[in-house]
């Protein structure tokens, strides 16, 4: 199972992508819990704000697009964690 976080937009318009192979993580059961608990189907459309980031989060079969201003709670936790694993590499 793979999680991909792709961040586009922002003032610079530069896209950055972070990936994690969940099965290869030492704490994979806690990853699975976090991913299962995400409100994948409860993301509502929001008006984009100029120059804010746009996050696309994929973990098959799920995919959501979130404006930066919608990133909070479990989504924030997931993004921080995915970025954290990538920073260690």
């Amino acid at each position: 199972m793979k999680v991909v976080v792709s961040r586009s937009g922002g003032f610079a318009g530069i896209r950055t992508t972070w990936e994690v192979q969940v099965d290869e993580q030492p704490d994979r059961s806690s990853w699975a819990e976090l991913l299962d608990a995400l409100p994948w189907d409860e993301v509502s459309e929001t008006a984009p704000q100029p120059d804010r980031y746009v996050y696309r989060i994929r973990c098959a079969p799920h995919e959501v697009v979130l404006g930066e201003q919608q990133v909070c709670g479990p989504w924030q936790k997931l993004i921080d964690r995915v970025r954290g694993v990538n920073d260690e590499l």
Binding site: S6, S8, G13, R15, R56, V65
Partner: peptide
């Protein structure tokens, strides 16, 4: 593109 609100910065 679907990124960046349809590539507005591109």
């Amino acid at each position: 593109t679907e990124d960046d609100n349809g590539g507005v910065h591109l």
